[in-house]
Design a binder for these strands. Sequence first.
DNA 1: TTGTGTTTTCAGTATTTACTGAAACAACAG
DNA 2: CTGTTGTTTCAGTAAATACTGAAAACACAA
Lengths: 181, 181
Amino acid sequence: MEAGNETERTADEAQLESARDEFVTQWGAIGSAWGINRTMAQIHALLLITPKALTTDEVMEELKISRGNAHMNLRELVGWGLVRSVVRKGERKEYFEAEKDVWKMFCIIVRERKRREIRPAIGVLKDCIERVEGLKSSEAQLFTQQTRALCEFMEMADGVLSKVARSEQSSVVPWALKFLK
Amino acid sequence: MEAGNETERTADEAQLESARDEFVTQWGAIGSAWGINRTMAQIHALLLITPKALTTDEVMEELKISRGNAHMNLRELVGWGLVRSVVRKGERKEYFEAEKDVWKMFCIIVRERKRREIRPAIGVLKDCIERVEGLKSSEAQLFTQQTRALCEFMEMADGVLSKVARSEQSSVVPWALKFLK
DNA sequence: TTGTGTTTTCAGTATTTACTGAAACAACAG
DNA sequence: CTGTTGTTTCAGTAAATACTGAAAACACAA
């Protein structure tokens, strides 16, 4: 009963294969809703659920994408720090593997988004605030008030995220959770 | 010295105007980095810094966009709850105004993104986990492990965000901030 | 009912974004 | 140096996304 014959093994593999495909596809869709290139999210998903490191060619093959596409998106993922490139001694090929620890992944994403998007946004807001300094019209008043509020909010968010991401361990947040109402 | 003559007033207005434009443009860029349609973010920015409610025509005029574009994006913003439509008695025109409280804005965005993106993502993950239940291969093991970890993480995030967004007041987070390291 | 002002829809088009594939390049082995 | 294997670049193209403008639908008044 427990013995897997060839037919059964194939069925199991097909089942896993289809779940993996589903995961990769959906992770791509989720990524693109958050402003991340679909293919990049799919490669990330693929590497997340693959035990061994993969070559560019294997990624191309799995996702049916071109070399250029695979290459550029792998580089981008390495740039984010979500994927590491591995070189095996004696081999000339480059291999890629994802950071698999979910909490580390989260910290990396938080840090990068802070750096790439939140910080610049705060800069823009400060610039806008400066530009209207001293203006007295009611339009100017509201403008200053709104941009100030937005700026303060983002600085606060930046602070919270820094602390959460710096802790590098999942224990802090669940703990803080208890205190939150 | 403090008296604003016409020339000065015009200069001030130009200064404000340019800061407003900058804000609207940059807010659009920021939005699109987070997966939000640029025009929608710009309309939102415009309404955020405009004291009075605006008509579709005024939005079209300010942003130099077509009626269809303005209309659809205003509807989308109303759908998110970030903008309210106001009807003035005796007038047939529809006016639009943004929710200006930054904390409320944040809560709305969190709630909507939870509903539209985090919840569905959790659903997908659960589905993937179910599909490979009982499979024993090492590939299947890693797959289950990763999807489980991801799923648990997102459920935790969902919980944290629910609590933060439910509180409806900015006081809780700054307070929690102290406890975070 | 007909006219007037307003909102809504959507086919066609424009713009932006992403991808392909081939050529150039780099690293190394013989 | 020459061939082999692997990486990088990027011009051209495809796909996805967003926008326009005009027509249809709607709501109300006269």
